[in-house]
């Protein structure tokens, strides 16, 4: 964690035109899992402004290396070796230090290691598919993995997910909690996917597409993709007579 004084202001209101709405019928499961009544807007109280923060002591040595964290000694996962890195900032551009990121993905063939999953593509005995890391004081993070494959799913009869990595992000307040998916630059499947298209604005979709980053590629080892994450900003506490920010 940084030495910066913890911030206690309320979070900026979420732009729910930017996020996907709950009801997006082309993504069929959303039809019966979307609330029909309006959300009740709630000015942030202490219950939303506070949130759990996790220490680096939580992390094991290989937690940020999916190529090796499930592999037998001396072996490694099969697939295109990549580094995913970037910065977690808030809407003001301020780095979010100490943010726990968890990620999960299918293997290079598009197969998830999960009891409920039965896709014909084979499991990789050296690939689990989960990892985690905590951002440094400036909000930077990085991890190693293999590039996941595309994956068919029972929505339309011939629907395929683009290659993607799921991200779960903790900020500093529980109201910043976010789960999203990262896609890869140039993948034509992105623009055909009903889950991607649950997001109405093309610019918002582009915010989920990681760019190939040659400057951070390690020659003869792994290519790099850069994926920055933006969490909700928060109001400053300009006036001390207010309990919890402006």
């Amino acid at each position: 964690m940084s030495n910066r004084k913890p911030e206690t202001g309320a979070f900026f209101q979420r732009d729910r035109q930017w996020h996907p709405p709950a009801y997006t019928p082309d993504y069929k499961t959303s039809v019966v899992r979307s609330p029909q009544r309006a959300l009740l807007s709630l000015d942030n109280t202490l219950s939303e402004i506070t949130g759990p923060v996790f220490g680096h002591a939580l992390l094991g040595e290989l937690d940020d290396d999916l190529i090796h964290n499930f592999a037998k000694p001396g072996e490694s996962a099969i697939g295109q070796r990549i580094i995913v890195h970037g910065r977690v900032v808030d809407e003001r551009g301020v780095g979010v230090g100490g943010a726990l990121l968890e990620f999960w993905q299918a293997n290079a063939g598009g197969r998830y290691r999960h009891r409920r999953e039965g896709y014909v593509a084979a499991l990789d005995p050296n690939f689990g598919g989960c990892g985690r890391t905590i951002t440094d004081e400036d909000g930077y993070y990085r991890f190693r993995t293999v590039k996941p494959g595309a994956y068919p799913w029972p929505n339309g009869v011939n629907d395929w997910r683009p290659a993607h990595i799921h991200f779960s992000v903790f900020g500093h307040g529980f109201a910043q909690r976010l789960i999203t998916q990262m896609y890869f630059e140039g993948d034509p499947m992105i623009w055909q996917c009903p889950i991607v298209k649950s997001i109405p604005d093309k610019a918002a979709i582009e915010q989920l597409i990681a760019a190939l980053d040659r400057h951070n590629t390690i020659p003869m080892d792994a290519r790099a993709y850069k994926f920055d994450i933006v969490l909700r900003g928060r109001r400053s506490t300009l006036f001390e007579n207010r309990l919890e920010g402006n």
């Binding site: 979420r14 732009d15 930017w18 996020h19 996907p20 993504y27 959303s30 900032v89 808030d90 809407e91 003001r92 551009g93 999960w104 998830y112 999960h114 409920r116 999953e117 799921h166 779960s168 992000v169 976010l178 789960i179 999203t180 998916q181 889950i195 991607v196 649950s198 997001i199 610019a203 918002a204 979709i205 915010q207 989920l208 994450i229 933006v230 969490l231 909700r232 900003g233």
Partner: peptide, 12 residues
């Protein structure tokens, strides 16, 4: 900046 848009957590 705009907040990173949410996506479903999915079945896995």
């Amino acid at each position: 900046l705009k907040e990173t848009p949410s996506q479903t957590a999915g079945p896995y």
